[in-house]
Write a protein that binds this DNA or RNA. Sequence first.
DNA 1: GCGTGTGAAAGTCTTCACAGCG
DNA 2: CGCTGTGAAGACTTTCACACGC
Lengths: 254, 254
Amino acid sequence: MATGRTHRPATRSRGIPEATVARLPLYLRALTALSERSVPTVSSEELAAAAGVNSAKLRKDFSYLGSYGTRGVGYDVEYLVYQISRELGLTQDWPVVIVGIGNLGAALANYGGFASRGFRVAALIDADSEMAGKQVAGIAVQHSDGLEKIIDENGVSIGVITTPPGVAQAVCDRLVAAGVTSILNFAPTVLSVPDGVDVRKVDLSIELQILAFHEQRKAGEEAEAQAGAAAVAQAAQENNGKGPDGDVPAVMPA
Amino acid sequence: MATGRTHRPATRSRGIPEATVARLPLYLRALTALSERSVPTVSSEELAAAAGVNSAKLRKDFSYLGSYGTRGVGYDVEYLVYQISRELGLTQDWPVVIVGIGNLGAALANYGGFASRGFRVAALIDADSEMAGKQVAGIAVQHSDGLEKIIDENGVSIGVITTPPGVAQAVCDRLVAAGVTSILNFAPTVLSVPDGVDVRKVDLSIELQILAFHEQRKAGEEAEAQAGAAAVAQAAQENNGKGPDGDVPAVMPA
DNA sequence: GCGTGTGAAAGTCTTCACAGCG
DNA sequence: CGCTGTGAAGACTTTCACACGC
């Protein structure tokens, strides 16, 4: 995952834990799939499997939303879809601007799941005059000169930054000044924003580096395990016929 | 953050907390920038600011790696770059395959930061025969028939999935069967993998939904704050000249 | 004196396990 | 009887605050 935040210290009641919020979209996706297959109810066990979490966690998560299940039965799929959608604010429409229409910006504009639920690409913005006027994903790219006006006229509060890292902070500042209060940042830059503005980041190279760390550790453990196995084999040989405990590992890898 | 995992319960010594691992790439990026500006040393305060975290967290994180700082001075930039790179496994080269060369796959292939440190795009793979043979980012796209052979010959252990969701699990299964043990999944699907295989996911629509949640809450709080302000104003009016406590809010929004 | 390194405290998240309701 | 909802325990993470070494 990839996250940066800026929050007051966990508000009063209605306070759904951040970790739970981050999983609600997962549940919603699984529930939507069930709904499309006209499945009427689902147990925490089944839904948890579909969402890739364990059932205790799921039940705890849902308990923060209220008591929406029926004991001995499970959860009503349609009802839950509605409740989670409402909780996430997806019953309203969120106009979004994408700034920086390079490869990635274009890919996101074309991404279907974007419009699917609650989100609408209000505008594509680029600093390159060559780019302005071209159509991407059926939407005309506009020059960044008009950024403030576009945001104001469309009531945009969510901005997606897919610019080169060098200009990301400047773009961010303009977005915030123009009234955007949520930013999804794909540029490999740490954005600084005033209080009250949320930033989430998506960063390919960070994700790869985390994978590399674990990958390296696996390789190390493998070697360690082989060394351990070799030691055991050797110990077994030395121990050959000396006692009845030959199947107990004689060496524990430190 | 966007994450799925599959781990044994936190290994013995050398056990760097997952939260720390996820921040190491951030520190590394900040340090690399300092290194390019030939800055010799940096304090935890400065580096933390550059990485967007607080200094106590950074010092605690570094303490898991060892004692690499000098009291009263700070950290040696070059030395830290090396230590973190080594810890993350970036001193070796990781060949990576990208499967699914649509808009997003192509964008990733073109992404510069990819090759920058430790990673190398070993192959681009697509199921579409039209696609196979075309060049993307200077690399010939290969047909997915040869997936197993490509992985084997290149010693690939990290795979990136940018296919449509419908085929993501099948692709994942083939990657794993061919020997891949780390997967970065951009498809909006929950992948199931055997133990020992790491999956991380990047999901645009989940990130947007999390932002929408907070955005909605801001709107609610604003209304609440206005109501509160109105109530206070009204209370102040009612309280007019009745006591010396007029600057203490008379009404606390429930 | 300054800034690191780190126990200890506080906070958050996950898991357990079972009471209780349909 | 099955499955939800939830206190309580446990694990992990962050923050605090200060001893310690340069």
